[in-house]
Computed example of a mutant assay.
Amino acid sequence: MRKETEILRPKYYLDKRGHDLFWHFEHGYYPAVVAISFCYLNMLKYEKRAGRKTQDPSEDLKKARTYYDEYVKLLKKREKDEIHDQGLERVLDCSDLKERGKTYLKRLDRIEEDIKSGRAKQ
């Protein structure tokens, strides 16, 4: 029988309220199909990476299992209509991509400056 999967949720992934990305997925902060796809692709990434980045594959395989567990949880929540795809159109819309790109890249620059200057909140 398979052991219970260890949930790898480091503190550095928590927001100001103590919530990680999985919590945001489970509470509908992102379109369901985006959250489910994110978990699915991370499952594949860690599966493929296992034993290649490091000799010991166990950490990557734990991560793959963690993403698999979240993937299943999200599929079930979507099936029960507890999460939805509202906002998907905005995620996929490229009509203002140039402007959104500028805004996003400025945000990344601001984050980098805040971290380097010590202004970033830990």
Results as ranks from 00 to 15, higher is better:
84 H>F: 00
75 L>I: 04
86 Q>R: 10
106 K>G: 07
98 K>N: 10
65 R>S: 14
81 D>Q: 10
96 D>P: 06
89 E>P: 01
99 E>A: 14
72 V>F: 05
97 L>D: 15
78 R>K: 14
108 L>C: 14
88 L>Q: 02
79 E>L: 04
80 K>N: 13
73 K>C: 06
94 C>T: 13
74 L>S: 00
69 D>F: 02
110 R>I: 07
75 L>R: 05
90 R>T: 08
81 D>V: 00
68 Y>W: 07
107 R>P: 01
105 L>Y: 12
69 D>T: 05
106 K>T: 13
95 S>E: 13
111 I>V: 14
108 L>S: 09
87 G>D: 01
110 R>L: 11
64 A>E: 05
83 I>T: 00
77 K>T: 00
78 R>L: 06
99 E>I: 06
74 L>I: 01
96 D>Q: 15
78 R>A: 08
79 E>C: 01
94 C>F: 12
68 Y>S: 06
107 R>I: 04
97 L>M: 12
70 E>P: 02
88 L>A: 01
81 D>Y: 04
78 R>S: 03
64 A>N: 05
88 L>H: 01
102 K>C: 07
88 L>C: 03
72 V>S: 05
68 Y>R: 13
72 V>H: 05
105 L>G: 05
105 L>W: 10
86 Q>L: 08
70 E>R: 11
77 K>D: 02
105 L>P: 03
112 E>L: 10
64 A>P: 06
99 E>S: 13
80 K>Y: 06
71 Y>P: 01
72 V>M: 09
94 C>D: 15
76 K>R: 09
78 R>T: 03
66 T>P: 02
110 R>N: 12
67 Y>N: 07
108 L>D: 09
83 I>S: 00
106 K>Y: 08
104 Y>T: 13
97 L>G: 15
86 Q>S: 12
75 L>M: 08
98 K>R: 13
87 G>N: 00
97 L>W: 10
94 C>P: 06
91 V>E: 06
96 D>M: 08
71 Y>K: 02
108 L>N: 15
78 R>Y: 09
76 K>C: 03
107 R>D: 15
88 L>T: 02
102 K>W: 08
101 G>V: 00
94 C>E: 15
104 Y>W: 11
105 L>H: 11
96 D>W: 06
82 E>I: 03
112 E>M: 09
113 E>Y: 11
102 K>L: 14
104 Y>F: 14
78 R>C: 02
70 E>M: 10
73 K>D: 08
89 E>W: 05
87 G>V: 00
112 E>W: 06
91 V>F: 10
77 K>G: 00
83 I>A: 01
80 K>A: 11
100 R>G: 07
93 D>I: 01
95 S>I: 05
100 R>A: 05
113 E>F: 09
103 T>P: 06
70 E>T: 04
64 A>T: 04
98 K>T: 11
99 E>V: 09
88 L>F: 01
68 Y>A: 04
